[in-house]
Amino acid sequence: MDLENITMVTEFIILGLSDKPKMQVSLFLVFLLIYLITLLGNLVIITVTCADPRLHTPMYFFLSNLSLTDIFCTCTIIPKLLRIFLSGDKTISYAGCIVQLYLFLGFVGTEDLLLTAMAFDRYAAVCNPLRYSLIMNHRVCVLLAAASWIIGFLPSETITASVTHLSFCASNVIDHFFCDLMPLLKLSCTDTDHTQSMVFVVAALMVVPAFSVTLVSYTYIVSAILRIRSAEGKRKAFSTCSSHLTVVSVYYFLGLFMYLRPASTYSQEQGKILSVVFMTLIPMLNPIIYSLRNKEVKNAVRRVIGK
Rank of each mutant, 00 (worst) to 15 (best):
E4P: 04
N5M: 05
T7H: 08
V9C: 13
G16I: 01
S18M: 02
S18L: 03
K20D: 05
P21D: 11
K22S: 00
K22H: 04
L27H: 15
F28Q: 08
V30N: 12
L40S: 13
G41Y: 08
I46P: 03
C50I: 15
A51K: 13
A51H: 01
R54C: 07
R54Y: 05
L55R: 06
H56V: 10
S64D: 06
I71D: 15
F72L: 15
T74K: 04
K80W: 09
S87P: 05
G88K: 02
Q100S: 03
G106P: 08
F107W: 05
T110H: 01
R122K: 13
Y123A: 08
N128E: 05
Y132D: 05
C141L: 08
L144Y: 03
G152V: 01
F153C: 02
E157D: 09
V163H: 06
A170N: 03
A170M: 00
F177P: 14
L181R: 01
M182R: 03
T192L: 03
D193M: 14
T195P: 07
Q196K: 03
S197I: 06
F200D: 05
A204C: 13
P209E: 14
A210Q: 07
V213L: 15
R227S: 14
S230Q: 00
E232C: 12
E232P: 03
S242G: 07
Y251N: 12
L254Q: 13
L256K: 09
F257Q: 13
A263D: 11
S264P: 04
T265F: 13
Q270E: 14
K272S: 09
S275I: 12
T280N: 03
I288H: 02
